[in-house]
Design a protein around this nucleic acid. Sequence first.
RNA 1: GGGUGAUUAGCUCAGUUGGUAGAGCGCUUCGUUUACACCGAAGAUGUCAGGAGUUCGAGUCUCUUAUCACCCACCA
Length: 1004
Amino acid sequence: MALDKNFDAASAEAKWRVVWEEEGAFKAGANASREETFCIMIPPPNVTGVLHMGHAFNNTLQDILTRWHRMRGFDTLWQPGTDHAGIATQMVVERRLAEAGEPGRRDLGRDAFLDKVWEWKAQSGGTIIQQLKSLGSSCDYSREAFTMSGAPNAPEGNEGNFHDAVIRVFVEMYNKGLIYRGKRLVNWDPHFETAISDLEVENKEVAGHMWHFKYPLAGGETYTYVEKDADGNITLEEERDYISIATTRPETMLGDGAVAVSPKDERYAPIVGKLCEIPVGPKEHRRLIPIITDEYPDPDFGSGAVKITGAHDFNDYQVAKRGNIPMYSLMDTKGAMRADGEPYAEEADTAQAIANGEQDFSEAMIAAMNLVPDEYRGLDRFAARDKVVADITAEGNAVMIANPKADEDGAPATIPYVENKPIMQPFGDRSKVVIEPMLTDQWFVDTDKIVGPAIDAVRNGDTQILPERDAKVYFHWLENIEPWCISRQLWWGHQIPVWYGIAVSDEDAERVGIPPSSGEFQAFCAPTFKEARVIAEKYYGCKVAEAEGDDWKWEFSQEDESKDVMTLFRDPDVLDTWFSSGLWPIGTLGWPEETEALKKYFPTDVLITGFDIIFFWVARMMMMQLAVVDQKPFHTVYVHALVRDEKGKKMSKSLGNVLDPLELIEEFGADAVRFTLTAMAAMGRDLKLSTQRIAGYRNFGTKLWNATRFAEMNDAVGIDVSKEGSAQYTVNKWIIGEVGRTRIAVDSALEQYRFNDAANVLYAFVWGTVCDWYVELCKPLLQGDDAAAKAETQKVLSWVIDQCLILMHPIMPFITEELWDATSDNRAKRLVHTDWPTYGDELIDAAADAEMNWVVSLIESIRSVRSEMGVNAGAKLPLLLLGLDEAAQGAFDRNRVMIERLARLDGVSTVAEAPKGAVTIPVQGGQVCLPLADVIDVAAETARLSKAIDKLDKEIKQTSGKLNNPKFVANAPEEVVNENREGLAAAQAERDKLMGALERVEAL
RNA sequence: GGGUGAUUAGCUCAGUUGGUAGAGCGCUUCGUUUACACCGAAGAUGUCAGGAGUUCGAGUCUCUUAUCACCCACCA
């Protein structure tokens, strides 16, 4: 079958996608010829996501490694699947419901809403997998996994045990005390009304204000406020009846528990221990808070006094815990000021008692207290802020400063002190709203207890992170790790397997063997309610049932104690998505079952991922796998760059600079996109992509196609070559050696994850060596009269093309498979399964190499002279040989037909002396001349020669300078010294020849 | 505030243990010679950010300055 002139990427890709899958080419273990396994876990994309450039890049690299290993006979598994992506997916479904005008999440209720999510998953969940296929990813799709598979509410088609694995891990970790529940200050997303982890918060600098307010001292007390400069001179001394505090968040004032100053701050020493009043709300509602000392306030910042709002600020939280300061929650789940219950108005003596530390509220009581006065209730936090500022200012409790515009008409002499300053503000990475620190009950992984093995594994080399600098990032994060908040107040996810009833006593918990309650409820943790009930029944000594709603109750039977029933309610929260994806390696292989796949492929080999999820995912997988099965999940983590646009900007929809990989695949073909990404995969921080570059590599595919077409036209394809390296002709010996070198270079690059090196080696070999030289050199042999030469060249060319296809296949699978198929009817296997070669140095023939170098450099020199002398490209010139030594003469004779053709020569003769007007060209072992008497331009030739001589002079000066330096000769390795000596001799010889040529030209 | 990285041809970037600077694109000139114009041939272009040091020798190692980027972080 004859190849078309052009490669039709789209139809070839469509065809091979189907064939490969139908033939099971990608199944685990396909083409395995050895025991060793190779397993890659795909970083699971969001189930409702679409393929973006980052995925394309990431999966191209994974596919290269997978295909390479599969061809090498490894028992290979590339495990695919998707992630349920809690927040992201719930957000999408809620938005779709809203757009469709359907009832929202709250109206639907939990079960009905989850049905909607599953529907959406069924509808869009296959998209990204299909897109991976169009990229050519050779995953074992029959094993596609999903992090929510096997969930109790999963519809048909989502069987599997991932859910079981997640729940089981939770239970085990809970029982080992690695997971606990507690009231902590967490990052709260008021849009999604859920807690999120530190990592899901993006701190951004925004323009903010810092207000300065007076907190009046209780009972109208006064003190002398003294400020001194660095030398101790008094710069300000005045009587004050207030303490000045600075804040960027006035709306949290209602929840203040104290004002803190530095213990070293002499200005406030007189009033430490006294009380001051929070100047917000109706007078009868105001609270007094103590002035305390703490190391946290910086005397040089603001006024040196900090209001402490333990429930709404992470620093204040620490201060409040240290100082036993009450923490009052002011806001609801939407970030509005609380409106629940009765507003709590404190009696003056109660305030005093609290301030004195004499009144001790329980945490629960404090949480229930609503300190928000009527006029603030229900206000959004930002509206509340405005109102607080306005109210305080109106009442005269703002600190006033001189008005810089006091001169202007009607301007007041003083104005409230408000600093405009940039402040760092936390935003939810999904919702983009300002995150609110909130004091809530959440589940945490006690990361301190499981982080050790994850650090050790990388430190002692069990798992290697590449490039190494990313290991530093990994260490830094893990060594400073915070407890991991894993509960989310969402519905889409793995519901926490914990049921609650009223707490009876710690002794009962101990008796039953469960962790004691941390509050008014006792938790029973088990994979199913059935199992939880068993524990609970022991604990209560009565029957236990599951509540319909979210409240517990204890039903007493009057006559028969054995009919008492305790009703438990289930924790409504779900687990952080990263908790489940942290179990991806073992979960996809069937853990906790002892599956064949698990035994065979775990620990897996390489994880390929972007640096943006080192913390989110890589670190968590390390911790979780080590905690659960006590084994590292993979031996190598290859961290790749982020794909950016050609200007280096991060691709984002809002910037409109997104390159859609699917569109690119359509325009240039998947192979071109893959090759581009591979060629740019140097271990760096980012990767800039331009369509021009993709077009360049599309052309490369076409080049390969046409080289194969040339071979086909010359009956040089699909020839069965049983043994490599058997050739008589120099050019064939030489190219066989080049193939050997290329295979070594490609393997070595891939072994070191130097994908770009592999791509560049192949590009240079296929285009630069095979197409530019070997194919051209073949032509006179294939089209000449020497039957033996022709036959051998056909065989070798066929073999060379096959090797190109094999070596290129991991990067450009489609075009190579197509050519492999089209060029022979007798292939033993598909290319995707063809054995990767192991030949190498033994194919190199040093003599052939040297000879071809001589030939190539002769051709290049002649071409160069022709071009510079303005010889018509089509014209054929005679060539004169001058004083060639035996080796040079032999090389010339053996390759004469090729030289004549490539240098466009007509007739060769040997002369004793260069004729007048001939351009001489120095070659190793002699000179050659082109008689250009008619066309030679004396000035141009003089210039050419002078320039070449200048260049040589420079080189000679440099090299001889080095060689004349005794220290160089003494210290440099012998090799380097010899290189320089040889270089100098060669340069001098060439210079002599050129000088001779110059003299002759000048004589014209 | 801490950390990491970057600074090499007009552009985008390679450059693995120090040994005479590379690629792609772009540019210039020539050429349709039956694989390929998504092509071929020939060419031009760099104080390797600045400074200092180690060394026989530095784009590469050390220090330093400048600019940029990213990550982490609680300054009210």
